[in-house]
């Protein structure tokens, strides 16, 4: 089984170089706006994972891994850590685990910004989804070689 995984298409290769940063930025955008508009950790994570999967097809696995910086297994772990940590502050306030906590900032340009534990949780979800999907796809693709 030595079928070439990457697709020999110049257009795709060039396009993926351009698309990848755009898609990743878009995924961050989806993650951050998810609390108010359609989006959120699951969707953003899937978009990021698809972007890197596309890159994997257009270039090769090593390229895709380089883009990711981290090992997907670590991403899964960190995601779960974020998810659990976001529930902890409530305990110190004597509330049930996972009761959301909010802090309000006033920033010069952006105006009022609210940061809360649900955002941390959503980041955790994001990391787990990216990590899991890529762990599955990269492992499968590597097995192909």
């Amino acid at each position: 089984m030595t079928r070439e995984l990457n697709i020999q298409s110049l257009i795709l290769r060039s396009a993926s170089q351009l698309l990848l940063p755009l898609l990743l930025m878009f995924s961050i955008f989806l993650l951050l706006r998810g609390h108010d508009e359609p989006g959120g950790g699951f969707i953003a994570g899937l978009v990021a994972a698809s972007a890197i999967a596309l890159h994997m097809f257009a270039q090769d696995i090593h390229q895709a891994k380089r883009v990711l910086y981290a090992d997907p297994r670590d991403l899964v772990g960190w995601g779960l850590v974020f998810g659990v940590i976001s529930g902890v502050p409530a305990i110190f306030k004597g509330q049930a685990f996972f009761t959301s906590q909010w802090l309000e900032f006033t920033m010069p340009i952006l105006g009022k910004i609210k940061v809360g534990t649900p955002l941390i949780f959503d980041i955790g979800v994001y990391l787990v989804v990216v990590g899991s999907v890529l762990l599955i796809l990269l492992t499968l693709a590597e097995a192909e070689d």
Binding site: F42, L46, V129, S132, V133, I136, L140
Partner: peptide
Amino acid sequence: ILTAIVIGFGVLAFAVV
């Protein structure tokens, strides 16, 4: 449903492998 779809993917991957 949203979470079910994502989990469904994970479980499917597991089943396939």
